[in-house]
């Protein structure tokens, strides 16, 4: 009789933010159409490692299951990506799962991506609205071509994969990272969003700002949403150059 088909996981675990990491292996019966999150759910129901020992279930973060929320980012077979969109049938086994390394670890595969959300506040990643009164005007029009470019950036789900792959972003660096820079570019190109252009550009012209990018261009290659992050970074290079000249000669 042929050997029973299994799904084999090798998972890097850690019991808390300060614990020592260790590897644990799991084997579960093969079933078609599993993704990494659904397989982890099965392991949560059957928390037994490869030695047959009952263990505390693996902790991870996930939410939408359709690659739009960004919560289930982890390193799967050496690639930072969304666990819900990683289909078991497409992966080489044993499937190696590791937590993102650039964000503070909470437990096992779960990390704290707060740094990215703080960065979105810092760069004012929103469009200022008009007041609570009627301004008797329609929303400003955006050309179709510009809309399609902005749409790419609007798909950012702050999953942190680009941040994970960036050699300039890590726990000891002040660099704001590629994802928030993409949002600066998007909001600066909005007809009313551009009223805050100067604030956004100044926010990325200090320590840890745009200039700390090293052009390794890993961000654009790992982005699960194909966001042209390096275009945004170069575009912001132009915008900050102009802002710098304005600061120097106009003010």
């Amino acid at each position: 009789m042929a050997e029973k088909k299994v799904i084999h996981f090798k998972i890097k675990r850690q019991n808390g933010p300060t614990g020592a990491p260790y590897w644990e292996e799991f084997k579960m019966d093969y079933a078609p159409n599993h993704n990494v999150v659904s397989a982890l759910m099965y392991l949560r129901e059957h928390p037994v490692n490869v030695d047959g020992k009952k263990i505390e279930p693996v902790v991870w973060d996930s939410n939408c299951m359709e690659e739009v929320c960004g919560a289930c980012s982890m390193i799967i077979n050496d690639v930072p990506r969304q666990a819900c969109a990683a289909l078991i049938d497409d992966l080489e086994q044993p499937i190696v799962l590791e937590p993102l390394t650039k964000f503070p670890l909470i437990r096992d595969l779960m990390v704290d991506r707060q740094k990215m959300f703080d960065a979105l506040l810092k760069i004012k990643a929103w469009v200022p609205m008009d007041g609570s009164w009627d301004i008797h005007r329609h929303a400003p029009l955006i050309a179709a071509g510009e809309q399609s470019v902005r749409y790419l950036f609007s798909r950012c789900m702050t999953c942190g994969c680009c941040m994970e792959a960036c050699p300039q972003f890590h726990q000891d660096s002040a660099f704001i990272g590629p994802a928030p820079l993409g949002q600066v570019k998007m909001h600066n190109s909005h007809p009313t969003g551009k009223y805050a252009n100067e604030d956004r550009l100044h926010a990325i012209m200090g320590d840890g700002g745009l200039t700390d990018c090293g052009n390794a261009q890993n961000c654009v290659k790992v982005c699960p949403k194909d966001i042209p992050l390096t275009d945004a970074i170069a575009q912001l290079g132009r915008q900050t150059t102009m802002q710098w000249l304005r600061d120097m000669f106009v003010k």
């Binding site: 050699p167 300039q168 660096s173 660099f175 090293g214 052009n215 390794a216 261009q217 890993n218 290659k221």
Partner: peptide, 22 residues
């Protein structure tokens, strides 16, 4: 100083641009 702020991982991301960065 810039060199000290970076942590290249060319084994995990062996793209030409990343190698060029390192």
């Amino acid at each position: 100083w810039i060199w000290l702020t970076g942590k290249p991982e060319i084994m995990r991301y062996p793209h030409l641009d990343n190698i060029r960065y390192a």
